[in-house]
Design a protein around this nucleic acid. Sequence first.
DNA 1: ACGCCGCGTATTTTT
DNA 2: TACGCGGCGT
Length: 671
Amino acid sequence: MLTNTTLNPAQQQAVEHIGSPLLVLAGAGSGKTRVITHKIAHLIYRHRIAGHHIAAITFTNKAAREMKQRIGRMLKGDRAGGLTVCTFHSLGLLLLRSESHRLGYRPGFSIFDTQDSETLLRELSHQDSQQDLDLAELRQRISHWKNGLQSPEQVLADAKDEQQLLQAHFYAHYQRQLQAYNALDFDDLIVQPVRLFEQHPQVREHWQNRLRHLLVDEYQDTNASQYTLLKQLAGLNNGLTAVGDDDQSIYAWRGARPENISLLSKDFPNLKVIKLEQNYRSTNRILQSANHLISNNTHLFTKQLWSGQGLGDQLRVMPCKGPEHEARRIAGDILKMRFRLGDEYRNYAILYRGNHQSRPLEQALREYRIPYKVSGGTSFFESAEIKDIIAYLRLLANPEDDPAFLRIINTPRRGIGASTLEKLGLHANQRHSNLFTAARELGFLNQLPENARRRMEWFTDWLQGKKQQCTQTDPNLLVHDLVADIHYREWLLESCNNRKTAQKRIDNVNELLAWITRLASDQDPADGIDQLLSQLSLMDIIERNSSDQSADAVQLMTLHAAKGLEFSQVWVAGMEEGLLPHHSHLDTGQLEEERRLAYVGITRAKRQLTLSYAVQRSRYGESVDCEPSRFIKEIPKQHVTWEDGKSDPASPEARQAGKAHLSNLRALLND
DNA sequence: ACGCCGCGTATTTTT
DNA sequence: TACGCGGCGT
């Protein structure tokens, strides 16, 4: 990163360009976020454009948060007012919240996450008595159709065989059911605004006029529907700035279309293209290696990254006997290097292709007493206790959310059982109403035995009371009251026979409540539970781990997760044929994406880079012999030192480093 | 409501 | 080989 506030000529040009759409091809470490933030400041200060006419769009909440911080530091106070900095999905939500009525959604609509979608599909498949259905695959197929802006009708018409017809049928059914629940899935947050703009040109014009300047980060990651939405919003305003790097496109497998980069010059003939090739991150040896590697891919635009930082150390290639040996060598290496360079652990990273590779690494790091942090894994929002609380809120905001109703009706236990619910389902079906409404109707209640009726009435009355409370109390207080009312923590303690898991769950609930308090404190108190819920649904708080960023620890993560980050010292583990490139991605198009993955890994390193591989690794139970990755051979020889394959991690030097490390630990303990 | 067993599967992951 | 999930049995 640049330390002063000047921009290089290409950056300057990108910041000052105005009057036609702009594509900034920003190589790794070339300061793309810097261009976006400076351009926003430029638009506001130089061109006197009001903040509410500008939107910066990112893919992840994390990126949005970082950008907000950086813009906040640049703009003084009120100048940032009205500025939109958010993810694609939040932008979609913003559009939908103000225009939902035009699409047949009612306020308070629910947002289904991937799990909710899959559960819904499971139910539909049971209703259809279709047992042998790959639900995850079906869900992905539907998501793919949606992102390609194909309606169920189109897909039904285009179905080529029995299988496709069946899937199309489920797609149609799924979409109808979502509508009935007044719910949207993640894909809908993009697709429905696109539909809205197609059907209502005047609404589209309104938003074109509102968001005159769009700045898109990581543009190579856009999928078809996101691109369409961008085109619709950009209109003829000439206010589009797309910043991206085709060499860092590593998400084609989930629908990203890097060809959107070349599409841009077709759709906008007056497109201006600017390349950023000066890198502020790495040594030239690292950059030349990366350049050479990626030159094996086909390119529409070629870039040559260079840096003013000197040649730097050679890259090292470390052959290992197996994953465990590899892990120990890396751990020993880290100790040695830390002894030599005295850098903090947080500047060291170990990157790998698949999450399963973290295990031997973690073990070795523990053995060597090296603090580490693994990023990735299961998310907070997937845990049952969080989904429970959110389901309560969803139902309060949206009485038509039957899945939420079913989730919480008997959680915690209220003695409302299967037979009662069956009657309720039947009644709701007859009346074409949602479960919550049906549950309060006398026609239904009269069918129930005395006990069941009492319980049901007690519950729905309580819920109705809460609903009224929504309009009066602030959402923060409401949620805290709610959790206390249902004795949720107490129930967790009772229902988990393991004290530890119960405590963990209670901690999660407390953490959620703390976040809600925080979210509520910096939002307009007039915004009700809807607003709170949509923030939670879009997982704005996933990065809760950022609180323990203070911990000085070696970073372990997948290559995918490392995009956008940088570290002084980087190890890329498992540089083998079959792993990177992955054995299932060996044909041309996919191989290029694997190469980009290696490219992303290499370009994360600022100073030292080590590539390791194992000559033997067990795959699916049996041990296979491995060759070093072809990508290693694609790096110029003069930049690479091959280490001795047999070297012992417990070498004298490593022992010495280990001793020093231990005495440091002792010194810390004595403090 | 929970636990165990057997089967199938085995990159990457955000919203 | 290992893990996760679904189904079945207690």
